[in-house]
Write a protein that binds this DNA or RNA. Structure first.
Length: 166
DNA sequence: TACTGGATTCACT
DNA sequence: GTGAATCCAGTAA
């Protein structure tokens, strides 16, 4: 099982998002397959639309962790991609209590203290050679028809169960 | 300094 | 389907 290189993330956000489906997210000792992601580029709905102290990491890095706090209750885990800017929200993984972005962070104890970490430390993305079938939602978002975000799901859940790695 | 609204979740109807 | 919980980043002044 090999760890994805930093350069894997130095590509178009949507391409990376698609390829992340079926890969394995490791946080501390927990490993689970990535089931659902969302790709954010220069989107009106995205923090990447303006460069601020918070969103700076999306402009300056790739292969880094971007965590933000939302609705006063939840954190969301992202991985930065090419410096255009962009990031990929990890929405769900194949692990109990990780069926949504807020729940995932709560279950894995991910908070803003993890913001800015480079992949390879607490967080790793691994490739075990599994190739997932992918379902794509076209350009989610309705505000002013200017959204450029895509959501990708794994299609073959039954295969994931057979290839469960935890 | 004050205000506004959000990349969510869950309980309730 | 709807609304509440909750707090912080961003923005305007």
């Amino acid at each position: 099982m090999k760890q994805l290189s930093k350069e894997f993330f130095n590509r178009d956000t949507v391409v990376v998002a698609k390829e992340l489906i079926g890969k394995i997210l490791q946080v501390d000792n927990i490993r689970a397959r990535i089931l659902e992601v969302e790709a954010y580029k220069e989107d009106l709905a995205s923090h990447a639309r303006t460069k601020t102290p918070r969103s700076k990491i999306m402009f300056d890095t790739h292969g880094h962790i971007y965590v933000y706090f939302i609705y006063g209750m939840y954190h969301c885990l992202n991985i930065t991609t090419d410096s255009k800017p962009g990031a990929i929200l990890i929405r769900a993984i194949d692990y109990p209590g990780c069926s949504g972005p807020g729940k995932l962070c709560k279950t894995l104890n991910i908070t803003r203290k993890d913001n800015g970490l480079e992949l390879g430390g607490r967080f790793k993305i691994l490739d075990d050679g599994f190739i997932a079938k992918i379902k794509k939602s076209e350009r989610i978002g309705i505000k002013e028809d200017k959204h450029l975000l895509w959501r990708f799901y794994i299609e073959d859940y039954s295969v994931v169960n057979q290839k469960r790695i935890i």
